[in-house]
Computed example of a mutant assay.
Amino acid sequence: MLSEPLIERLTETPLFAVGLTLAAYLLGMALFRRLKQPPWLPGILMAALLLAGFLAISGIHYTAYQDGAAWLSVLLGPATVALGMPLYQQLPRIRELWRPLAICLPISASLAAFYAVGIAKLMGASDHVMASLAAKSVTAPIAIGITEQLGGSVALLMGALLITGVAAIAFVSLVARVMKIRDERLIGFALGLNGHALGTVRAFEIGPTAGAFASLGMSLTGIFTALLLPLAWRLLGG
């Protein structure tokens, strides 16, 4: 464990937190490639575990780390907007499937919020916890705003986002293999809709078409949820 004066010196500027985050990410991705890219253990999860382990061993409080790395969250918005480029490149293919996508999206996005809140309610969770889990399938920049509007915890939301993304990658890969689905458009859309940014990263590893449809699924899910979830929450007395 590091001494208190050393911790204060390291965390007095954001450079340490940013460098630590980048180092954890690079090491996690290197391990991911070394393990032959298992779908159930993405590099971002290994990076998060490495980072959490270092903070626990060093004695650096999470709040101090978060204050230093907070400005990285600002990049989430531009990164999400930048996904519009592959969408534009795949626009002809997207137009071909607009009808099934329009039917699938509301059902899938609604179920994504419903089953999380429903399971939490059955387990006796408080309204605060349920409000924190409702937007767990939405990309972080949008999910944070929704959670704050519902009165949930952003910290709990971030954990739910990570778990949801990892689980979506594993289950979509498994279902596609079992059902012998090879259409990158379907796989990508499912990854983006259920696994938000993490699923989209995985989709781009499959191919540009999968990545574009994952971007579409992630974006539309975020818009749909942001518009209707707060309204549904108030109507249901949340």
Rank of each mutant, 00 (worst) to 15 (best):
70 A>Y: 12
93 R>A: 07
66 Q>C: 08
61 H>E: 15
83 L>Q: 03
92 P>Q: 00
59 G>L: 03
68 G>P: 02
75 L>F: 11
59 G>N: 06
59 G>V: 04
54 F>V: 09
80 T>L: 12
89 Q>S: 09
93 R>K: 11
98 W>M: 14
87 L>D: 04
77 G>H: 00
70 A>E: 10
61 H>M: 14
66 Q>L: 13
78 P>I: 09
54 F>T: 05
61 H>G: 15
58 S>N: 05
94 I>E: 00
61 H>F: 12
96 E>Q: 14
95 R>E: 09
58 S>Q: 06
85 M>V: 15
69 A>C: 02
80 T>A: 10
57 I>S: 14
85 M>S: 14
89 Q>Y: 01
97 L>I: 14
92 P>C: 04
87 L>C: 11
76 L>P: 08
67 D>W: 12
78 P>D: 03
77 G>M: 01
67 D>F: 13
97 L>V: 14
77 G>V: 05
86 P>Y: 02
93 R>L: 09
73 S>E: 11
73 S>M: 10
80 T>I: 05
82 A>Y: 05
61 H>R: 15
56 A>P: 06
92 P>V: 09
98 W>T: 05
83 L>G: 00
66 Q>E: 14
58 S>C: 00
80 T>C: 07
85 M>C: 13
89 Q>N: 12
89 Q>G: 10
83 L>C: 04
92 P>E: 01
56 A>S: 14
98 W>L: 12
54 F>G: 05
90 Q>L: 07
57 I>T: 11
86 P>H: 01
91 L>E: 07
64 A>T: 12
70 A>N: 13
63 T>F: 01
59 G>E: 00
78 P>F: 05
76 L>M: 07
56 A>F: 13
87 L>S: 08
95 R>C: 09
91 L>N: 10
74 V>D: 15
89 Q>M: 10
69 A>P: 05
69 A>K: 03
80 T>K: 03
61 H>I: 13
87 L>W: 06
69 A>G: 05
68 G>R: 00
93 R>V: 03
75 L>R: 06
83 L>P: 00
54 F>C: 09
82 A>P: 00
61 H>W: 11
57 I>D: 09
81 V>N: 08
91 L>I: 13
80 T>E: 03
67 D>Q: 15
56 A>D: 12
65 Y>N: 06
81 V>A: 07
62 Y>G: 10
97 L>S: 11
67 D>G: 14
65 Y>T: 06
67 D>I: 12
54 F>P: 02
69 A>H: 04
64 A>Q: 11
74 V>I: 14
65 Y>M: 06
76 L>R: 05
96 E>I: 13
70 A>S: 13
83 L>W: 00
96 E>Y: 09
67 D>A: 14
95 R>Q: 09
70 A>Q: 13
66 Q>F: 14
89 Q>W: 01
77 G>Y: 02
96 E>L: 12
60 I>K: 06
70 A>F: 13
83 L>F: 02
90 Q>H: 08
